[in-house]
Design a protein around this nucleic acid. Structure first.
Lengths: 341, 341
DNA sequence: TGTTAGCACTCTCCTTCGTTGAGTGCTAAT
DNA sequence: ATTAGCACTCAACGAAGGAGAGTGCTAACA
């Protein structure tokens, strides 16, 4: 779709004004506030054209115009200038990440909080799936006779643990041996690469601790089974209510329902695992409940490997340029910080 | 405050009807639906009396009556009959707890989900504070040269872990020694009982691993410092919107703000640490934002020791009898299940 | 041919005003 | 002490009417 310079200016004015005010934009407003050097009548003509192209629409006859999903799309793709984040904002983010954090989870929570407070939208993270991670350490320890703790650390810094019942005859030394052998065999291997030959060879090496090995493997198995429900974090869900278009409970309901449904969120975010910034505007979203929302997503990485998705959910009337630059900077900072973990 | 039998009946009718319908209750309604054997005029007189006593109020002149906070209080204390939970409900709860769960956190989440879905109110838990717990195991392990994982298990089944940087010279054997000695000295002791003499004696035993010990102690120190911000879990926050009195966003806002503020929630729940069921009705709540809500709380225990608080937050127009019996049964079941952990 | 002023028209929003209905308080009769 | 009856009050609802914002169209203009 090709637009001449003036039509672009008009569309831009409508998008910008509507994003700022949440009110349909009239031709007079544009003529007054955005000096395009033409009268409101001319703008009216342009607007009629833009409407015919489906880029803007009228809520009702005597109202101003509002960008349509396609209008926003055109704005995001062809008009909007990606502006670099202000220095102070960058500094604020960088400083926040300076705190000594050693836990992946805390880092994610931090990112979310910053993201939400700086954009006043809802922010979400789909956290690394264990099966995409690589085992860094597995350790079994005796809690008390008959009980052992299994701890697993994956490369992404994710720590999983579980207490299991074991035979009372198993000693601390036994567990150390098991830990040692499991580490020897599985360290550095992505969990999904473990195969049966390897498993049975390990099992045969540890006949005495057979029961313990089984339990440990059972736990790992469970982690694999859990693969589908990755953790989803979110922050700033309340921010939705700051948007005038969502002042009515009935309109937020479907969104809130989504936000309480981890599985649905996880599925939505999982589709956005592609690298780089993704923008889903209004009806472009597959999930019914957020057809009047926009979702901007990005991925964060460790050593070039994509670990998870981080997203911003707001109204279609979203401040795209701003949101994108913040999201981009935060995922970058997060990725860098992860490397230091 | 003493009420004659008929006044009690009238108050009861008003409370029950208002809880069910959320509409102010008129004298005619009571005469029709709750056969007290007297005419609406008589009930009108009784209502005038009840209003003078401050037990009920009129939203406006020509409306019916609504229970006041004191009215609800009287109802809860003196009129309401504590009914036992239906067998099916009990079975449902017991069955849900049958799932093999080994993690305290999952158990809490489960309780919350059941609670919310059975009451359609918002449920909260203030989880055990580490300083009230007793150390069951501390273990340090080598993740890779220069990095160690510290794991701490407390008696309540709470697991805390942290990765720390250590000197590269420290070996796995060193860490094992440190773990062993720390366990020897601190196992079974409530964290808050550790004193300086003990600490320095441990330190002098482990001169070579001095740096590691320091880090471990630093971590423990941090846990102590963290004492104030205990974990708060919640579920069913969305349920608020099912209440007709909260269909307006502006009225839910303050509640939602509270629900997003872990510290505030924690403080509120911390005040309800007394044993047994506590009911805070409307204005009895100290936090401004929930002055038109009621909060029912109970504590869950392990071996007679109170571990945490579990609460139900709903409108003052809450189905008290039902809510209380469910909450009571769930905390009991939770406490029993904890013992099996 | 593109731009603009002018004007009639449309539609929402707000206010006003009367009507309805639920519910009350009081009074007088039982 | 209870109750029937009645006048009164007030929120809720809807109709009516203006105000205001914005449009589309037409005709004049550069």
């Amino acid at each position: 779709m090709e637009l001449d310079a003036r039509k672009r200016k008009v569309l831009e004015a409508i998008v910008i004004d509507y994003i700022a005010t949440a009110e349909p934009v009239g031709s007079r407003t544009i003529a007054r506030k955005y000096n395009l050097g033409v009268s409101s009548a001319t703008i009216r003509n342009e607007m009629a054209d833009l409407e015919e192209m489906g880029l803007i629409e009228q809520p009702h006859t005597s109202a101003g115009r509002v960008p349509s999903d396609t209008g926003y799309r055109y704005y995001v793709d062809c008009i909007m200038e990606k502006k670099d984040l202000a220095y102070e904002a960058k500094k604020l983010i960088r400083d926040s990440f300076q705190i000594k954090i050693k836990q992946l989870e805390d880092l994610i929570q931090l990112s979310l909080k910053i993201l939400s407070s700086m954009t006043s939208y809802t922010s979400l993270v789909l956290a690394p799936q264990p099966d995409k991670s690589t085992l860094q350490l597995i350790q079994l320890m005796l809690v008390e006779p008959g009980k052992a703790l299994i701890v697993i650390i994956t490369e992404g810094g994710r720590i999983e643990n579980r207490i299991v019942d074991i035979p009372e005859s198993i000693t601390k030394a036994d567990l150390d041996i098991v830990s040692q052998i499991l580490n020897l065999n599985f360290k550095g291997l992505p969990i999904k690469d473990w195969d049966k030959t390897l498993l049975s060879s390990v099992r045969s090496q540890l006949i005495k601790q057979h029961k313990v090995v089984s339990l440990a493997l059972e736990f790992l198995d469970m982690l694999l089974r859990e693969e589908k429900d990755d953790k989803v974090y979110l922050a700033g869900a309340l921010n939705i209510f700051n948007q005038p278009e969502f002042r009515d409970v009935s309109k937020v309901r479907s969104i809130l329902e989504l936000l309480e449904d981890e599985d649905a969120l996880s599925n939505i975010l999982k589709e956005e695992m592609e690298d780089g910034i993704q923008v889903r505007i209004g009806g472009e979203n597959k999930y019914e409940g957020i057809k009047n929302c926009s979702l901007i997503t990005a991925t964060y990485k460790l050593n070039g490997k994509t670990l998870g998705t981080i997203g911003l959910l707001g109204p279609t009337r979203m401040h795209y340029a701003h949101a994108i630059s913040i999201l981009e900077f935060i995922t970058d900072t997060l990725s860098i910080t992860l490397k230091r973990l």
